[in-house]
Amino acid sequence: KSCSILVTDANFECNEENIMLQAMDNSHIALVSVEIGAPGFTSYRCDRTMPLGVDLTSLTKVLRCAKDENICTLKAADEADVLNLVYDAKSAFFSPFFFAFMWHGRDASSPFPPFFLLCSALLPLFIHLNISLSSQTPITSSWPETKYDTRVTLPSAEFTRIVRDLSQLGEHVRIEVSKEVVRISKLKAKSSAEDEDNDSIPTGVVIEMNQHVSLTFSLKYLVNFSKSGSLSGEVQLLMSNDVPLLVAYDFTQGYIRCYLAPKIGD
């Protein structure tokens, strides 16, 4: 869901170790990179590496029909052009679902017929899978290895609140990191004792800095990135003065990493 805010179509690169997704938004200002490792699934089998080109908007709609207690099984046969999702409804009764989803063989862009369906555990939900032949050039392969000048770790809820509040006030924000202070909305690391009594400074802000950094970013994108906040209790902001910002959410099964090109000139 947090990816579908940024990109509409993307390739899920499936191999025997994991499922990865890398995609840029249409304006090439942001890039999202997702990895979910095989151990993160109850069971996982991938007989051969294959790219699954999926319309994320449709996938999000279909996944919204699942309840927390459902177990979702994703299947794609060899040479398939359909991704098969089956929800194993634990409860005995069936609840009617109203949703639209792609019919097998329909083009991704055409509007889907609204469809009223009594969902049952046995009835597989098909969404049309556009296997996109041109998978995107993976461009983040070297950025994670980039040695960033600074890394700020803070509670993801705090980051979400800050960028949401600031986005009410303007379009962009300057993030400045020095030894003791991350100046987004004047966050300070809770490093020295005298900070203890100042409860306005949130706990759990850790600043690692090799070199002072000061960059300006679009708040619209930061707000979009913060939608991944529910996946992890904390978020890392990695910055250097000459590479895109990395907003990283790590979770048990893998990660979501969002890259954002800075704004330049004051």
Partner: peptide, 14 residues
């Protein structure tokens, strides 16, 4: 007003 860069500016870093 700051001007938005795009990611292609950074591909050369790879």
């Amino acid at each position: 007003t700051p001007v938005q860069n795009d990611l292609s500016e950074y591909f050369s870093l790879l």
